[in-house]
Design a binder for these strands. Structure first.
Length: 418
RNA sequence: GUGCCUAUAGUGUAACGGUUAGCACUAGGGUCUGUGGCACCCUCGGUUCGGGUUCAAAUCCCGAUAGGCACC
């Protein structure tokens, strides 16, 4: 776990074909077992900061912190890798500070594998997403987004061009330009093991016409990210294409043709749960599962695949069975700060007064520190009193719970059950 | 003891004599998927009590009760 020596992959650990794939990259990916029942794979991702058993959940630590957690606490939840954010860290404290501190891992005392997201998601989340108050799995206001995009409107606080995106922070007024080169420069300064290409994350249910234009941009940026790269950090390319089969496949083929070290699947992934389309205009049946069915078989199976931003418990087996190796999701941490614990009995909203008199642990079947040492009663009190310790205790439990769940999924693959 | 003022949902407040008595917080229920410790949606819940005036009273009048202030 400690640094380069131990983590340096043994010779032959790189299954990549050809020079382009292995080109001095400091990560490796080894598939231990391929399921016979599905496309699921069990693997090991090797990085300069240690190994990651896959499939694995990658908790989100946007600002070089998993919110409410110390880094050692994150490790105690059996989290193996986390992902921080280029856009946010550029604004605060700035990548120079992080670099001067010795890179993200030293800066935040997380001597383990890390990714940085490129800022591409913020093109959406701080753009149309913010304007209309929707997430990327939006089921509401979709028509408004469609109309705005059709009119050729730009979001209120950013401008998208073929070169990149000019962000104007409505909070600070700060302006910054982020394009492929800028994103890679920042990510290199941050120094995570794995970087993502700068992409345009499109709003939910964009038109085919807009998606085509956007895809051309994202693909051009993908090339420029590769050209801009100067370090041996790994770089993943991102497959876009929204809910359109031919565009998703085109994107997968394109990205697969470039010397990326791995892949991200991003953008509108439809209804992650079932695949019942919800926009009511011809995309019925297009869900995350479908999109992964279209795209993953087109990607070099020897490279790791990361699903961007999906991960309710109910989604995990579905995406893993399609061949996803890693996935990041805010759900366990985000919900924790709203007082919601995920348990073997479903979601518990600890904000409810009924829990004040419940002396059981959050989940009697859970072995985490929160469940071993604290009651629902106490946690409910903390939530209602808005004590920050509530966020700490529930985040710890949720991460531990999700990680245990994913460990169970890995065991199923190992045993040939999934 | 006397005088004056006040009384609307659990709390804080709004309502020319004509509104379905409005709002905020709280409470109860819900939403949240490459992170704003946000935010949003729904619901429950009220004119202190007793008389009177009026077609019509939270609103005007009289009393009771409670609180505040001042004076003795």
């Amino acid at each position: 776990m400690d640094g380069w020596q131990n983590a340096r992959p043994r010779s032959g650990a790189f299954p990549f074909r050809g020079a382009a794939a292995t080109l001095n990259r400091m990560i490796g990916f080894r598939i231990l077992k391929k399921s016979k029942r599905s496309r699921a794979r069990l693997g090991v991702l090797t990085t300069p900061h240690g190994e990651v058993e896959t499939p694995t959940l990658v908790p989100v630590g946007t600002l070089a912190a998993v919110k409410a957690m110390r880094s050692d606490e994150v490790a105690a939840t059996r989290t193996q890798m986390i992902i921080a954010n280029t856009y946010h860290l550029h604004l605060m404290p700035g990548e120079k500070v992080v670099k001067a501190a010795g890179g993200l891992q030293k800066f935040m005392n997380w001597p383990r594998p890390m990714m940085t997201d490129s800022g591409g998601f913020q093109v959406f989340s701080l753009g149309f997403g913010r304007d209309l108050g929707v997430g990327k799995v939006a089921k509401h206001f979709v028509n408004k987004i469609e109309q705005a995009v059709e009119r050729g409107d730009q979001p209120k606080s950013l401008r998208i061009t073929d070169d990149g995106v000019r962000f104007i922070s409505p909070l600070t007024g700060d302006e910054l330009f982020l394009g492929p080169k800028e994103s890679v420069r920042i990510q290199e300064a941050l120094g995570a093991d794995i970087m993502f290409a700068f992409d345009e994350c499109t709003p939910p249910r964009v038109s085919r016409e807009y998606m085509k234009k956007s895809l051309a941009r994202t693909h051009a940026w993908a090339k420029r990210c590769l050209e801009a790269r100067r370090t041996s950090q790994a770089l993943y390319g991102i497959v876009q294409g929204s809910l359109y089969e031919n565009l998703r496949k085109e994107s997968a083929r394109f990205v697969n043709g470039l010397p990326f070290d791995g892949f991200g699947i991003g953008g509108d992934l439809g209804d992650a749960q079932g695949g019942r389309g919800s926009s009511g205009k011809g995309d019925q049946g297009v869900g995350t599962k479908k999109i992964l069915e279209w795209t993953l078989p087109l990607l070099d199976e020897r490279k790791p695949r990361h699903l961007l931003g999906i991960g309710y418990l109910e989604d995990i087996e579905t995406i893993v069975k399609q061949g996803i190796d890693t996935f990041d999701c805010t759900v366990p941490t985000h919900y924790a700060r709203r007082g919601i614990a995920f348990t073997s009995a479903g979601r518990l909203d600890l904000g409810k007064a009924a829990f004040l008199n419940d002396r059981k642990p959050l989940d009697p079947k859970c072995g985490c520190l929160t469940c071993a040492e604290y009651t629902r009663s106490y946690v409910a009190h903390l939530v209602r009193a808005k004590e920050i310790t509530a966020a700490t205790l529930i985040t710890f439990h949720n991460l531990h719970y999700f990680n245990s769940y994913v460990e169970g999924v890995r065991n199923k693959i190992r045993k040939g059950l999934l």
